[in-house]
Design a binder for these strands. Structure first.
Lengths: 251, 251
DNA sequence: AAGTGGTCTAGACCACACC
DNA sequence: GTGTGGTCTAGACCACTTA
């Protein structure tokens, strides 16, 4: 019942569909099967591995979801031609990220006030005209150095129990993650020179290159928060490991 | 045979396992089911949707792969607590990205020479001591402005037919993507001030904040290329849309 | 018209974790 | 032990696409 697997193409994970997947994946990654190459049909793989169609189907669907192959009815499955590099960036919660590096973490609230939603809030986030916005400015420290400067706007009406939050002691990002655990977000990453004010707050020379991350967050279509984080360029690097993909794998 | 689906929880995609998946996903994203909440058992969902176990299994496996739930034998499936934000960054090929924006693209090779692998090549990329490295420096233009400056090292011995490439006319990234379509890579994103030399080449004032992307590429464990790209900070923004995840969904 | 993949069924055995 | 999820089978019907 077992298919004889060449030791060099042996994969971690013992289930048959994982072995089939890995075998094909390695042929693609090694360049043995180039873009456009037709993968064996499901019925051919069934015969090769002596298994049910559901098993090879699971392997091929998994490769299709990963963007390595394209499946076309009546035609077969084909190795895709990668066009964009799709990188999975891990962006940890700031506090957790600093602690994970073994550094001391400190948080400081600089400023907090409530006001009416601005025109920008309405236009970029779809906030209600009558909505109230909580505007926060705070700093994150890693081992006594300023690690990040945070400008945040929270749509008060969309966040239940926000009155219970004490942002003098808890970073708003952490509080929100605890209370609105799942959400959708949009991210922009850019490089900007620190002006005099930003430089003072980050305790770096004026003009220092900073990594600027803008993030907007929604839940069920309703805007929750918008935040801009300034990182001194030498302190924060975003690192990731990936494989190219053909088209957006994410929906 | 059909389960009666509430119109508000109706999903795109008509297959049953997609509907089951979407229904559960919306309960999680809306906050109705908070982290730690136990999803109904597979046999309960079978009864609710009057379908086979494979069908609910496919829906739950898909949610587990997406990082929204955690599955534990004997215990059940539970909504996960997100800890890191995992963003899928789309990083297009430079030429394709500029053309996609409707801008004119131009490429210029500044410098090319072959030399022995340096100590850094060996240490950071695992290049062979006797290996030859092709060192390139080039610029990418979008509508007459300098869009990016590229420093690249290619491990000549690992890339067949590289002698056929004409990097005076074709950007090395495009040539490599055509000839080594699938690979693994590691990416670092940082912000740096342009020094005098970089600023001159980018045609921006000295000290301008730049987005610096370092990428190293392997195929089947063998180093292919390492590249550093400098983007003027105001020109290139990396944009992405995502949902938080619990732990690394990528392997 | 034919043959592919997409989906689904109604079973089954097993590993594992918890009791 | 007991019950969960993990995996697999041997069928089946259908939609779609392409030859």
């Amino acid at each position: 019942m077992q298919h004889i697997v060449n030791p060099t193409e042996r994969a971690r994970g013992d289930s048959l569909h994982q072995r089939i997947r890995s075998t094909i994946e390695q042929r693609i990654l090694s360049g043995e099967w180039r873009p456009g190459h037709r993968i064996p049909f499901e019925h051919e793989l069934m015969a090769e591995y002596r298994c049910a169609r559901m098993t090879v189907n699971k392997a091929l669907q998994s490769l299709a979801e990963a963007g390595l192959i394209e499946r076309r009815r009546r035609a077969g499955s084909f190795v895709r031609r990668p066009s964009v590099h799709s990188a999975v960036l891990a962006i940890p919660d700031i506090q957790a990220g600093i602690l994970a590096r073994g550094l001391a973490y400190r948080y400081e609230l600089l400023h907090a006030r409530r006001c009416r939603a601005s025109r920008a809030d309405r236009e970029t986030m779809g906030a209600l005209p009558t909505g109230t916005v909580l505007v926060l400015r705070c700093r994150h420290f890693a081992a006594r150095r300023v690690f990040a400067l945070e400008h945040r706007r929270i749509m008060v009406d969309a966040v239940p129990h926000i009155g219970d939050a004490d942002f003098a002691t808890e970073p708003p990002g952490s509080w929100l993650l605890r209370h609105i655990p799942w959400h959708e977000a949009e991210l922009q990453i850019a490089a900007m020179n620190a002006d005099a004010e930003i430089a003072t707050l980050l305790e770096v020379p004026s003009g220092t290159a900073c990594l600027v991350v803008d993030r907007q967050t929604w839940r069920a279509g309703a805007a929750i928060t918008a935040v801009r984080l300034w990182f001194p360029g030498d302190l924060q690097k975003l690192v990731t490991r990936f494989t190219p993909t053909s088209e957006a794998g994410a929906k």
